[in-house]
Design a protein around this nucleic acid. Sequence first.
DNA 1: CGCCCCAGTTGATACAGATCAGTGCATGGG
DNA 2: CCCATGCACTGATCTGTATCAACTGGGGCG
Lengths: 252, 252
Amino acid sequence: MGHDETAIGRMQANTIADDGDEQKFCSTCAFGAVCVGRGVDKLGLAELHCLVEHVGPYRAGESIFRTGDRFGAIFAVRSGAVKTRLVDLEGREQVLDFHLPGELIGLNAIHPEMYPCDAIALDTVEVCRFSFPALATLATRIPQIQQELFRRLSKGIGDASVRNQESSADERLAAFLLELSARYAARGFATHSLRLSMSRSDIANYLGLAAETVSRVLRRFQDQGLLDVDGREVAIGNVTALRDIARNLLRA
Amino acid sequence: MGHDETAIGRMQANTIADDGDEQKFCSTCAFGAVCVGRGVDKLGLAELHCLVEHVGPYRAGESIFRTGDRFGAIFAVRSGAVKTRLVDLEGREQVLDFHLPGELIGLNAIHPEMYPCDAIALDTVEVCRFSFPALATLATRIPQIQQELFRRLSKGIGDASVRNQESSADERLAAFLLELSARYAARGFATHSLRLSMSRSDIANYLGLAAETVSRVLRRFQDQGLLDVDGREVAIGNVTALRDIARNLLRA
DNA sequence: CGCCCCAGTTGATACAGATCAGTGCATGGG
DNA sequence: CCCATGCACTGATCTGTATCAACTGGGGCG
């Protein structure tokens, strides 16, 4: 418990990230599962610990990496939220994903050996940097780490491919909120009350909708008693109804 | 050259897949790049060779694996084409992707330790089966193989996330055709003339369109002289024009 | 303090593409 | 041989959501 989970979102620039605790090793960090859940021994844990570098804080709008940067490391979000996005030739933005504490970014950069997107802090963000060559080398010696990397990468594929659905604005938004809620819950945050770190237009862009549509749907959900929306604070009032609306998107 | 590339699509059920050739090791196979291009030594090659199992042929409509099957192996398509899809509770299908010779399927099954989708043969299909535990073990000993797996997985994430765009039917179809063409070309098939193994409704479903829209757009492209469409045979007449239409989808 | 600017919201209108309906054309089985 | 079946195509309508436009409120800064 060395960490106070609920305080993470409120960390400010003056907070210097500590190195975690040898037993728990960044309970909010991406590799928590490697260390806590599965059988990585003390030695492996120590080695993994060695190659982590804490970076940040970044302020809202700053980038952790940018499209075309040479790939050298993957990052785990420690606190705050990050969006990944493409910007096309005409300057139009395309939001690829949002990343919450404990999630990895940069996995899609291994193949092209450069980052294929920008990673932008949405609020104050701290990350762990894992040098990828070092991590890969470690992975050859510690199968559990290799396995965890495979798992993470595999999950990345699964997550990315489920989104490509033809579906209504209602479905998309309901699914989006439920997924965010679940991802926060998985990290020990409150389940039914969440703070959206991203703007309406980021949400819209991510979901392939217009910002106005997001507003309208949220409004309607509120009128129907499914949500309580106050700016970027959202409280989910009726989970089952939301789930019902989203059911087509939430994987059979 | 032991293989006649152009014959692969025409392989019939009576063709027993040979084991390739020690030097080339399945030039159409997914791990060709490991063996030919990068520095895997004879020994590593032989070991990789050992854990491959040739499976098939499957007939059109048969499944290589199904949603929920316990995960044990990834597969490389040797010949034919495969679609991966979800079927939701109401029985509606959602096409996730198409896989051509040389491409890997099952990568998204590592994380949940079960296949999260069906893999269905679109025509006569032969595959290579790689036991994943064996492959992972081999990867700890042969870094090039580990590296190639990381790369493949990473590419899978990149490919999946680019698709999630808000875009017009024209853009989607142009991009789809160009991508198919490029993927065939990368495997040594004819570049501007291709046979669609999948039905119009599979294409539509994959692209998030109605089948009627696919028909209409193909028709219009043909009227504009961009394509020559004859059933499932498509010849690309004006690549640059198509590229121009698709430009918003083809990664800045 | 007051101004500006931007995120968010709400309303009116337009349009791309879904949906419905029907035709043509192969293929295969009785 | 004929009919059933499934895929592909085309035309006519309908609708969800984009788009355009106008308004609101709050936060930062001169």
